[in-house]
Simulated scan of single mutants.
Amino acid sequence: MTEAHPDTERLASVELDAATLPAATAEIEHERRVAIFDLVERNVFSPAGAPGGPYALKLSLQDSKLVFDVAGPDHARTHVLSLTPLKGVLRDYLMICDSYYEALRGSSPSQIESVDMGRRGLHNEGAETLKARLDGKIDMDHETSRRLFTLVCALYRR
């Protein structure tokens, strides 16, 4: 990907369609808000064929599919992704996150580091899978795909 123009190849807002998402605890709602803030704060996001942004993204879940409604000044498009290719890495990532938080409560620094390395590896794998699934639809850099995967995890978590 080429260097993005900061004003046009980016997300200006991200909205979640609460009506289609699973009920969330206060903790999960907080995770979702933080993930959205991080994603909007810094991203490179360019829908294929779009004349320029910035863009607004609305995420929803429909029939076990992740729906990306992307709108820009002269662009509106919907992309639907099956969650099936992501389910394994999502499940593994959420399990290792639980292990990481448990390790923080009483494990040695080397054990914490080991679990954290695994957690980061799965996070990168999930981000790359998501980026590959959006290839040809939405162009983004690695850090944006990581932030988007974090948001997907927060949506998927129950």
Rank of each mutant, 00 (worst) to 15 (best):
M1E: 12
M1T: 15
T2G: 13
T2Q: 09
E3Y: 02
E3P: 07
P6T: 15
P6I: 15
D7R: 14
T8L: 06
E9A: 11
R10G: 10
L11C: 14
A12Q: 15
S13N: 15
V14C: 09
V14F: 13
E15S: 12
L16W: 10
A18C: 11
A19R: 12
T20H: 03
A24K: 13
A24H: 04
A24N: 09
T25M: 05
A26K: 14
E29A: 14
R32W: 02
R32P: 13
I36P: 06
D38T: 11
L39I: 13
V40R: 06
V40H: 09
N43W: 02
V44I: 07
F45T: 09
A48V: 15
A48L: 11
G49L: 04
A50G: 14
A50N: 07
P51F: 01
P51Y: 01
G52N: 08
G53F: 01
G53V: 06
Y55F: 10
Y55S: 02
A56Y: 00
A56K: 10
A56M: 05
K58A: 08
S60T: 06
S60G: 14
S60M: 01
L61H: 00
Q62P: 00
D63E: 03
S64D: 10
S64Q: 08
V67P: 07
V67S: 02
D69A: 08
D69Y: 01
G72A: 05
G72D: 02
P73D: 04
P73E: 03
A76H: 11
T78Y: 04
L81G: 13
L81Y: 07
L81P: 13
L83S: 04
T84I: 10
K87A: 08
K87I: 05
L90A: 03
L90E: 02
L90Q: 04
R91I: 00
R91L: 01
D92G: 07
Y93S: 15
L94F: 00
L94K: 02
M95E: 06
I96Y: 05
C97T: 14
Y101W: 10
E102Y: 06
E102C: 10
A103L: 05
A103H: 11
L104D: 09
R105F: 01
R105A: 15
G106Y: 14
P109V: 13
P109W: 04
S110A: 15
S110P: 10
S110M: 08
S110Y: 10
Q111G: 12
I112S: 05
E113W: 00
S114K: 13
V115C: 04
D116Y: 04
M117G: 13
M117N: 10
G118Y: 05
R120W: 01
R120Q: 14
G121H: 10
N124R: 14
E125P: 08
G126T: 07
A127W: 05
K131I: 07
A132V: 11
A132M: 07
A132W: 12
L134R: 10
L134A: 07
D135A: 15
G136E: 06
K137F: 12
K137I: 12
I138A: 03
D139R: 05
D139W: 10
D141Q: 03
H142C: 08
H142R: 06
E143S: 13
E143H: 12
E143I: 03
T144V: 09
T144N: 02
R146G: 01
R146C: 03
R147G: 10
L148G: 07
F149A: 00
T150D: 07
L151I: 05
V152W: 01
V152S: 02
C153H: 00
A154E: 00
L155C: 07
R158I: 03
